[in-house]
Amino acid sequence: MGVPGGVSVEDKLLAFCRRALSALVIAAAAIPLYLLIKQALTPELESFAWPPAWLPKSLTLTYLNGVIATGELRVALMLSARVAVAAALLATGLGTMLAYAMARDARARGLGLAALSVTRLLPMVAAAMPLATILIRLRLYDTASGLGLALVHGALALPAAAILLFGAFVKIPLELEHAAYLDGASPLAIFLRLNLPLVRGALAAAFVLSFLASWDEFGFALLLQPTNRTLPPLIYYYTVFGDAGAASALALVSAVPVLIALIALRPVLLHGLRGRAR
């Protein structure tokens, strides 16, 4: 809101507030990240000392090695990855279909948006508990393959993927489709050869975001895979019942790929944030 010229007391106060807020924001982000890394790299004794040390006294790779070496953790890691890939494929694939229908048909748009919004209203427990009953009957409950969980994760990630792709599809001029139609392309060919290649970027973003949504998901994973655990429930158990070093090492391993991917996707998340001065 700084207008060049008049520097009032109000404006000065504003500048101070801005700096204070920046500091708060950076602290709020840096402290948890720092403690996570610190706990993962220092012996447990340090984490349980009184008062707990904010600065590391000695470093150890025991926990990180443990994450990789321990069978349980490796299994969880693999299961999480498998479930997330399957969920991302489902969400992106079906989300693309829905987004295309929504972008090209006004009635489908209304119906689609309503359906996607209604799914957001459903509390996790209300879906997960009966779903567990259904999955037990289908022999998909708590399996080593994680298929049942992947199915519900795909559905959870679908709305965001569909909205993202919808935004990409509506930008394609309808005249291009008409041209392809006159060039003799079938509806399927128009979709596959014209529209899909033009939304490649959005497809990649939707896949990554869906993957992460599944990778991070805790509630359904806790209820549907009580023994064949994915990473988030495992981190939960380690945090509440286990030791700090292992919990943090595991958390770190699960957070790093997420952070890299999301920071790389920052432009998608922040839209045109930078360069907008006011």
Binding site: P173, E175, H178, A179, A180, L182, D183, G184, L194, L198
Partner: peptide, 29 residues
């Protein structure tokens, strides 16, 4: 194959080369 059209916006396929644009109707045949 009776009609072809040149659109106001031209409606060239932006992700295809000039060759592929011209070849597209033939590929569909």
């Amino acid at each position: 194959n009776a009609v072809a059209m040149v659109f106001q916006s031209l409606a060239l396929y932006p992700h295809m080369s000039a060759f592929d644009n011209i070849a597209f109707p033939l590929r569909m045949m």
